[in-house]
Each structure stands twice: as C-alpha cells, then as structure tokens.
Nucleic acid binder design. Structure first.
Lengths: 338, 338
DNA sequence: CTGTTAGCGCTTTCAA
DNA sequence: TTGAAAGCGCTAACAG
C-alpha cells in the first residue's frame, strides 16, 4: 500500500505538499505540481480518505435513507440526490429501511459511526427522533417527501393535500358520489395529508364525508389489493377508487382484474405518483404526479448549502406542487355513459 | 464529540477495554462490561469507525456497483446483497454506473479511497480492467450477472445461453420461422450469450440463421422501442420478437401498440428477465426468468467467505439456471390459428 | 482478564 | 511557496 509519504519521497517533497497538490488546496509551483502528479501516477497512489476524514472531520459523504428501494419513486429520488451530490464532490450512500423504524435507527447509527457529513431522510414515521439523533451528533439533515413534526430542520415535500383535493374533485366532477380512499399508514404525513385533501374536496362539493370509505393500509401492492378486495364487498359499492400511491394502485388494478371488473367502465381509479415511463407499457392511470427528481435534487442542494455555510440560518420548508394528469382510468362523466 | 477515552475515564477503565466491550472482542468481566455499557449510554457515545478502520485495516463496508438502479432487476439484486451483508455485519454502499465505463472507473477509485473491504461488481463491459484495479489495491471482488474475461476472479451469473436457447426453441415449436432478436450491447456478455443461444436453437431446428434479424442496441426501453420500429419495417416482417431484457421488452410492447399490432395475435413476444410482481398489473410476458436475488446473495456470500479466509483458494464460476415461464405473449401454435 | 504504548495515513497548525 | 511537528480516534501488539 503506497502512502502519501512514499509519494512525497519519490517526488522529493514533503507529504503535506503532496496533499496540497492532489486536493488542489494551497499553493504549489508548476514544477512541484508536475513532479508530484508524476509520482502519484507511477506509483498508482490511492489516497486513504479514512485517514484524511479522521483528521479533517469532513468525510464528503452524504446518505440517502429511504423507505423502499424497490419503488421507482425512490430510485428516481436516488438519481436526483446522486446527481447534485456528485457535482459538488460528494459521494452518496443509499440505505433502505423497509418502512421499519428499527432499521431506520440502525442505519442512522451506522451512518454517524461512519462520519457522514449529511443525511437526506425519508422518515418512516412522522416523529422527529432520527432527525434529533443526527443533529445532536453534529450531522446535518434534510427531510424529504414526508414531513416530521420538528420545526428545526429543512424539509422538502409535495403538496399532498392539494393533489388529493384535485384528484377527488375530478372524480366528483365526473359524477361520482361514493368514492373509496385506499391509503398508506395513518402515521405517515403524506397519507394523512391525502386524507385531509380527500375530505376537503368532498365537503366543498357538499358530499357527505361520513358515507365515504377510507381505509389505511401500507404503501405496497399487497396492501392495495387487500384494501380493494374489502371495498368490493361493500354495499353499496363505491364507483371510484383513490389509491394512496403507485404501489397501492397496482394492487388495486390487480384485485379489480381478479374480480373481472373493467377500469374505468365498472370502476374509476385515480392515484398518487406516476410510474416512470420506462416501466409502463401504456400510460393509463389518472395520477397526481410529483416532481420526485426535482424534490430530491432541491433537498440535496439545501443540505450541501448548509454544510458549506459558515453560520446558522432559518430552516426552510419547501413545498412542490403536484400535477394532475388525466388518463383513461378515471373514465368520463357518468351521465355520458347512460 | 465524546471519544472512547471519555467513556473509559467515566467507566474507570482503559480505552482498549471499552473497545473490547463494544466490539465484543476479547474478554471482559461482567462487572466491567456493565460499567462500560452504562457509560456509553449515559454519554451517548458513537464510535468513530473511520478511526477504527484506519487502524485495523478493515472497514466492514462492501459496495455494489451496478449499471442501472432504475431497473427492478438490480434493485432486487441490491436486496440480495444487502440482506446477506448485513447479516454478516457489513454495511453496503450502492453505486450506479449508467452502463458508463468512465463512471464505473470513477466509482472504483472512490471506493478504494474509502477503503471498502469488497466489491460486488456488475461490469459495464466484458473487459476486466476494473476487476484488476481493485485486486491490485487489495480489494476483493466478485463479478455478478455479466462475466468478464479474467479467470482470476469469482463470478456468479445466469445461463443466458441456455435461457435464450429455450425461449427460441419455444418460438420455433410454435411455428415461427422468422424471429428477430432485439438485443443489448454486443460487448456485454449476457447479450453475447443470448445471441449464441438464439443462433444455436435456430441451427438445431434446421432453420437458416442468416435469414433471421438480429439487432444490438442498449438494455433500455427507448432502445427496445427503436429496434422494434426497425424490425416492423422489414419485408418480410418477422412473426416473433425476442427481447434481450425486461426494459427492451417494455419498449417493444410500446412500439407494437403504437403500430396497432396485437400481442400475440399479430406478433409473438418473449423476453429475458421477469418483472417483479409488485410492478406488474397482469403477468403477460413469456420470459426466461433469472433468480436475481439468489444470484446476488450467493455472490455476496462468496465475497464475504473470501474476506474471512486466511488463505487463497481457487476462483469459482457459478452459473444459475433460468426458468422458462410461458404466458400469453408468446401465443399458441400458428397452425392452430388458421 | 486488563492495561501501556505505539502508530494507522492523513491534514491542521505553525513556522520559515 | 514549502515544510516540521503534532494529533485526529481508534486498535494491534505486547505485557502483566
């Protein structure tokens, strides 16, 4: 293993000079610069960043802690984080918590032990425990997608409330009066906000909120299918389903197919989150699309700005709008069909 | 920042004793153990792994370098690596190369600088440059999914040749005599092997290899759609398409839909790689499925075994079988239709 | 079973 | 513009 000292000896300089050249920090005459770079190349020198970070107290490593790496929503987010981070000279570690608070806390510990400079966190719940743990240990955090109760952290998310409002309003305008919301877990902010937006749209349209069906489950395909099955057994049966996210929607579609129900003829369907074009054969679902990539990128920018800042400043709460994309699954006006 | 010395002072022991307790290495009386753990808890001590790794020369960190994190094939692989690694006390870093050799080399450098113990590599090409760079710097590697020319590295992959042979044989048995292979890049081993299997099945059936259409593109949806469009303009037009992977298949389906061609009535379609159940509404594609999770898990086991080994031993080349899953997209016998 | 000493490879600090 | 000395926080090696 060649060290910085070996390179220094070969180039006939002090090791600190080698350090300055390879990190572009401090001055170095052109002559010395060339001699050092030549030595580095000849010896195949690979700097040991662990040693550097130990001394400098900065690792130039960020982490993205997300709840489900198999969901395209988060792989797109991963791209957003990665692109911004690498442009600023940071490396990114990706962690997957499976919506499990315990796993999240484990990762937080491991990340702190490995001295990451900052964390982009998609929290598994709405409490701010992980955020506080990180902050107490001097690690910067930005919360993305879901928001937590703390006021003392940067947060970047989408307007779930309004997105849900728009989707629900669309269904109502199409003539639906009995809509079921098949949602994620109640303790996750996005699910809670979508519930609120759903109710508000119904109330604004003068529809009875109490007579609608709302089920809280998980943001998975299995849960979506299960919730859809429950709803299909209700009498009277709703004429439209609102899925809490993309995976729930896929489960819903599966359950409807099993029940030999056509979408939108027999049942209208709308959902949050679009699926990436690369994964869809034929775009079909009416969705409230979130600008995931932009959200993740912006969050990472906030994080990096704070890492570069020399003084403290107010925490930011950035809310992106959703985009309503109307496709076939929501159907046309019910009256038109008659 | 509390250090191991602070904890040692608080517990009234030497720092090496604290080290032994928190790492479960060496002996410690129950009394001392309790005192140390209490001190750790009271002070909220977080060990600095950078310092430990610098001294011990082992970071307990592995990396998975993959070519496309947005492809479910690789997110499933990520799960396989992660599950095995964390069980053995390793942390995993995920890196995405976008099939770009330059990005791959950059990551290899960064990983070496950060002293990862081992790398699970999905190479972007079939040369063994990255493998050699890592090995020369004392980092263990295992190559997964695609194989490289080197004999001096563990490799785990699927039998692409036989999988392609089976898929092609199926199409032939259904009566197709003009089949187009829409493949990935020629310099990637999986694409090359699928090409070989395709040709062998044709030859074994006495069909003219030269009169079939073979196009090499990229493992993306866009490329799949583009290749399909090319094929559709041929005269005579093939009656069946063989997609080189899942993303190519999705592009093919899109192009066929745009051309108002029905699958399988107007065009039979088969492909490599199944899509995870969570992402598919209704399984429809006839595929040669690969046991991705198992492949990734096995590769990680090999890597960890080698890291634990006290002596060198022969490199292994593990080949998993593919499973032919026949669904609607391949259609029924052509004669039956008449 | 517990402790002392030294040093991993780098960068900070201070000096020339 | 370059260098010498010191030390980041931990664990290997050896001692008792």
């Amino acid at each position: 293993m060649t060290t910085i000292h070996d390179v220094a000896r070969r180039a006939g300089v002090a090791s600190i000079t080698v350090s300055r050249v390879i990190n572009n920090s401090g001055y170095a005459s052109e002559d010395i610069r060339q001699r050092v770079l030549a030595a580095v190349k000849e010896m195949g020198y690979v700097p040991n960043r662990l040693a550097g970070s130990l001394r400098s107290k900065r690792s130039k490593v960020l982490a993205l802690v997300m709840t489900d790496i198999t969901n395209p929503f988060f792989t797109v987010a991963a791209r957003g984080v990665e692109d911004v981070a690498s442009r600023a000279g940071y490396t990114v570690i990706f962690c997957n918590t499976d919506e499990d608070k315990q796993k999240e806390q484990n990762y937080i510990q491991v990340l702190m032990q490995n001295q990451v400079d900052g964390v982009v966190l998609v929290p598994s719940g709405s409490d701010s425990e992980s955020v506080e743990t990180l902050q107490q240990n001097g690690v910067q955090v930005v919360v993305v997608d879901r928001h937590v109760s703390s006021q003392k952290v940067d947060q970047v998310r989408c307007d779930s409330l309004n997105g849900a409002y728009e989707l629900t309003k669309l269904l109502i305008s199409l003539g639906h009066t009995h809509i079921a919301l098949l949602n994620g877990p109640q303790n996750v902010s996005t699910a809670a906000d979508r519930f609120t937006g759903f109710n508000r749209a119904l109330a604004d349209a003068g529809l009875d909120t109490a007579s609608q069906s709302v089920i809280f489950g998980a943001f998975t395909r299995a849960s979506g299918a299960e919730m859809a099955r429950q709803v299909l057994e209700m009498t009277p049966r709703p004429s439209a389903l609102f899925a809490g996210n993309n995976f729930i929607a896929l489960g819903v579609l599966r359950a409807l197919e099993d029940a030999r129900l056509r979408v939108p003829e027999d049942m209208a369907v709308v959902t949050f989150d679009d699926l990436p074009e690369s994964l869809v054969i034929s775009p079909f679902l009416t969705v409230a699309a979130q600008p995931v990539y932009e959200m993740a990128a912006r969050a990472t920018e906030l994080l990096i700005e704070r890492l570069a800042a020399t003084q403290v400043y107010d925490f930011q709460d950035i809310v992106f709008p959703t985009t309503l994309i109307v496709r076939k699954s929501s159907g046309v006006k019910i009256e038109t069909l008659k």
